[in-house]
Design a binder for these strands. Structure first.
Lengths: 224, 224
DNA sequence: TCAAAAGTGTTAGATTTACACCCATGA
DNA sequence: TCATGGGTGTAAATCTAACACTTTTGA
């Protein structure tokens, strides 16, 4: 308290936009707010930044608490700090987005937290400025996905090209030509075909692919 | 203090990366830090967020105090919040970048604040994580400039095409072909040729252009 | 046998890049 | 008269977008 004591301190929190991909839709994990003010409203998950905790750590901790998963792909969206954004007190909140494979999220844990996957295009009004946070997170994620292959984080380790295409369509918000898409995938090189066949989603069966991180790292080129 | 009192509060500050363009170089306004800890080190300008002040307002106020200018183009870069980023206390800082026309900045005011324009490629080590803030601000600004004509904020109202090209080169970090550049400018439509001639930078004289905001707003397309 | 999803190439058009010379003027 | 920066067009190459049919197999 020796240096800046004449200035005001404020609460700083972190809110996380957790993206998942399921049933061909981009989804966000939301829940009912468990504290006042706003108890019971739809809300993102978040937590307060502790005195001895960096903001990235706080986001990781929040994600871990909610999903049980560590080392999720996570990026900062930005700080939200209007004076009256929180109805209770002055809180500056820093939004992060994270990508998870829906199937990695233990259903029991999800229910314990009363968390729900909701289509990003069907979100209800959320607490405070959380809808705006989601919009910005989506823009950010879409932009990132154009230049880095982060989308794999939303899929199982093995996936079909149609799944991958649906993912890009859901994120980009528009349909993609199948042949052009597959042509681009082939050019990338770091999306490997395996010998495995997925028989669940079609009668004929579709080849399963995987993301080869090593190849990607050696060959740092990318375009959607 | 009724809702979140069990959580810790921290100081929140704003740091501004002020970009200028002069002598064909992209420059940043820095100064000597006027407070402890770190007094005398090279630093960005910043200020603490007051209890009754939003973070964007805080950034505007900081810019106004330093430059005397209002309504500068300004965008948030993001929040910086490692526990030990500030050597004195726990401070979460939110970085913003702003664009100003160097000639709009009153020299007297600049000297009063002991502020200096420094080539972004020649920056000295700055206080705390300010170098990293500058790097991120530059990436952000470069990216933005590819899709929106924000560069005009760094130039006088009237400018020659060569000036404009040098600006894009400085921001993009690479040379641009003169004919291709001018071809693109013509296609844009919202960069208007005036009848005025600049005789300062060449013997022959160069046509002066201006950015027509109205035309731009009616025709929301853009590419570098 | 048929419905449903997988898989596969080519072509036209659009965009991007490379490139060189003449012009006007002040010193 | 010459050095300096201003100004202009074309052609090749690359990238992007549009487009339709055959295959496999479970129901």
């Amino acid at each position: 308290m020796t240096y800046y004591s004449e200035h005001a301190k404020v609460w700083v929190s972190v809110d996380v936009i957790i993206f998942g991909f399921d049933e061909g839709k981009l989804k966000v994990l939301i829940g009912r707010r468990q504290m006042d003010p706003g108890r019971g409203e739809w809300s993102l998950y978040g937590g307060f930044v502790a005195a001895n905790e960096g903001i990235d750590e706080c986001a990781s901790r929040t994600l871990k608490e909610l999903t049980g998963l560590r080392n999720l792909y996570m990026r900062q969206v930005g700080a939200f700090g209007s004076v009256d954004r929180d109805p209770g007190e002055r809180v500056v909140s820093i939004a992060y987005y994270a990508l998870i494979n829906v199937k990695d999220y233990d259903e029991k844990l999800r229910k314990e937290h009363q968390a729900e996957w909701v289509d990003i295009n069907q979100l209800p009004p959320l607490y405070s400025d959380h809808n705006e946070m989601v919009r910005q997170a989506q823009r950010r994620m879409r932009q990132k996905m154009r230049t880095e292959p982060i989308g794999f984080r939303l899929l199982p380790d093995l996936f079909t090209l149609t799944q991958l295409q649906r993912l890009y369509e859901a994120v980009g918000g528009q349909e993609i030509d199948k042949r052009n898409f597959r042509k681009r995938i082939k050019e990338m090189g770091f999306i490997e075909k395996t010998e495995l066949i997925d028989k669940l989603s079609s009668k004929r069966g579709a080849a399963l692919y995987r993301f080869n991180k090593r190849v990607y790292n050696e060959d740092p080129n990318f375009k959607l």
